[in-house]
Design a protein around this nucleic acid. Structure first.
Lengths: 144, 144
DNA sequence: TATTGTTATACTCTATAACTATA
DNA sequence: TATAGTTATAGAGTATAACAATA
């Protein structure tokens, strides 16, 4: 058997770019339906994994630390997160998702209809394959 | 054989979020190294596929049409794109990549080291599988 | 000395609404 | 009437540089 035709890097990057655009568009619409910007929604999504210091949050969102102040300010004003002083290091402030914030974060994911619908097209084996391939490509630290 | 354990939707969405976040971070850093914002880099990437009207560009980038004016203004000022009057409809302006713009767009993709390195870990069959899965999930119109 | 979070600043992105020139 | 592109405007994101508090 000849198998599937070879997919060169340029084509794969193009497909990744288009896929990301579709995912990000879906996410942005879902966040907007909760009256949140994409950055605010992204911050909530990250915080679903647990509390994080301002600095760590900025690193995860790949933006400068100074940006987090305004983003967290707006989320805090809406009662979606709160700042907590770190017991171990008085310079550090941990950002924690409130119950309302958790509810909104769940709502965003639930509203990502295009992505959910796309994933529904895959059977169990395909879902497992996609999961593993993504982990290999993006979430494995470089051998170095 | 029991096969791979089942990957539920929540877990797959989480991995997608992290993976595409990594891709987007890689892209943003690459664009910044060419002194471009992510939106400007995205516009160049889209234009690599061919000229596009302002409106079509806005639709592809999922932003309001009014935003394109400023983005294209800045790209044009740097000589990376140019506006061309459409011969068929005098209201329409087609945005075209200049040679310099094409060079810069290629440069961005070449500098996405993390993504390229990640893709290098896959063999031909795995690359083909990833490509097909992404197309199925994100680039196939909903059955409706 | 180095680090955390904040502030001040300047520029860019973003949506909404109103305008113009075409169709 | 409807559509393409632009302008004006206001709010939000973004990086840089400088600062106070703490390590």
């Amino acid at each position: 058997m000849t198998g599937t035709p070879r997919v060169d890097t340029a084509r794969l990057m193009e497909t990744l770019s288009l896929s990301l655009g579709a995912y990000y568009g879906d996410f942005t619409v879902a966040a907007a339906s909760e009256n949140l910007t994409a950055s605010q929604g992204k911050a909530l999504t990250v915080l679903r994994r647990g509390p994080a210091a301002m600095r760590a949050l900025a690193t995860t969102l790949t933006c400068d630390a100074s940006n987090m102040t305004g983003i967290v300010d707006r989320l805090e004003k809406r009662g979606l997160v709160r700042r907590e002083a770190s017991p171990s290091d008085r310079r550090v402030k941990n950002v924690v998702l409130t119950d309302e914030g958790e509810r909104v974060a769940d709502g965003i994911r639930a509203k990502m209809r295009l992505t959910q619908g796309g994933l529904d097209r895959l059977d169990d084996a395909e879902r497992a394959a996609l999961h593993e391939l993504l982990e290999r490509v993006f979430l494995t630290p470089p051998a170095d």
